[in-house]
Simulated assay, not measured.
Amino acid sequence: MEYQAKYITDDIKLSCYQDQFFKSDILFEHHMLIWFISGETKIVRPEATYFFKKGDIFLIPRNQLATIINYPKDGLPHQTVVMHLTTERLRKFYDQLLIKPVTGYIPSIKHYSNHPLLESCLSSLIPYFNMNNIPKDIAHLKITEAVTILRTIDPEIDHVLANFEEPGKIDLADYMEKNFMFNMPLEKFSYLTGRSLTTFKRDFKKIFEITPQRWLTKKRLDLAHYQFAEKKKKPIDVCYEVGFENLSHFSYAFKKQFGYAPTDLLSA
């Protein structure tokens, strides 16, 4: 994978992937506002699978697990402008406002297709990526502009951006049933369910009567079997969507679990 990035500041970058595709299971520390210049992205979340292309603008909320798959398209690389809306900046922005976010609000990916105000804001950053002397306050000004536009066009965005709470202790079984397909370290799962790693492992064993890793592998393979049998998806797509990182390892694990290869199931 050939990856290149140009930065205006740590919070604003021009991201470019040149190769066939890039895949990662990600937990973003900060909200990410992304504008597509070229290429395509598939984002797998528990509630839906999202597809984004040239001209699209979307926001990925922080502390949400997602599988990101980036593709070049039409001979052009996968290229995006990415703006990190950090908690520190957002706190300063909302300190001046009397906003009370709705408690228990579960954020999903926000899609702002070809919106002229946001596109104007983000496209205006392009010249700065080729400058050596960046104006001192440009990141603050552009992020403030972007957040102001988001608040103008999306009445629910304050429930996302003004919520600074960290994950609290939640129903472990329900969370894992919805998020098992994301290939994350157990430390991340424990953090997102409001537990220490030791407590997470103890609670997990009590609920499922099996170790987390064995349970995760079985759940991912069961989902893969369903995707082949009912959806007729390709092995390369299913492999990455259910939480595996390597196609050969996935095929080996699938055959070990079910006694036949994915291609055998598809041909049948």
Rank of each mutant, 00 (worst) to 15 (best):
P116D: 14
T67E: 03
I43Y: 00
T86S: 15
P61L: 02
K100A: 13
I109A: 02
A48N: 15
N132Q: 13
L97M: 15
K92W: 09
V81W: 01
Y128R: 08
E47A: 07
Q64M: 14
Y94R: 05
R91E: 15
N132V: 08
I106C: 10
R89I: 07
S123Y: 11
K73A: 11
I106L: 12
G75L: 12
E88R: 09
S113E: 14
L125A: 07
H78W: 09
T49K: 15
L117H: 07
T86Q: 05
L122E: 01
K110V: 02
M131I: 06
G55M: 06
Y94L: 11
F52D: 01
F93I: 15
T49N: 14
Q79H: 07
Y71E: 10
Y94E: 10
E47Y: 12
I126S: 07
S123M: 13
G104F: 10
L90R: 01
L59T: 00
I106Q: 08
A48H: 09
N132T: 13
L117A: 14
N63A: 06
Y105D: 09
D74G: 08
N114T: 08
S123I: 08
P107D: 02
K100Y: 15
F52S: 02
R89C: 02
Y112T: 02
P77N: 09
P61A: 02
R91G: 06
H115R: 05
S124T: 13
S123C: 12
K54N: 15
T87K: 12
P116L: 13
N130S: 14
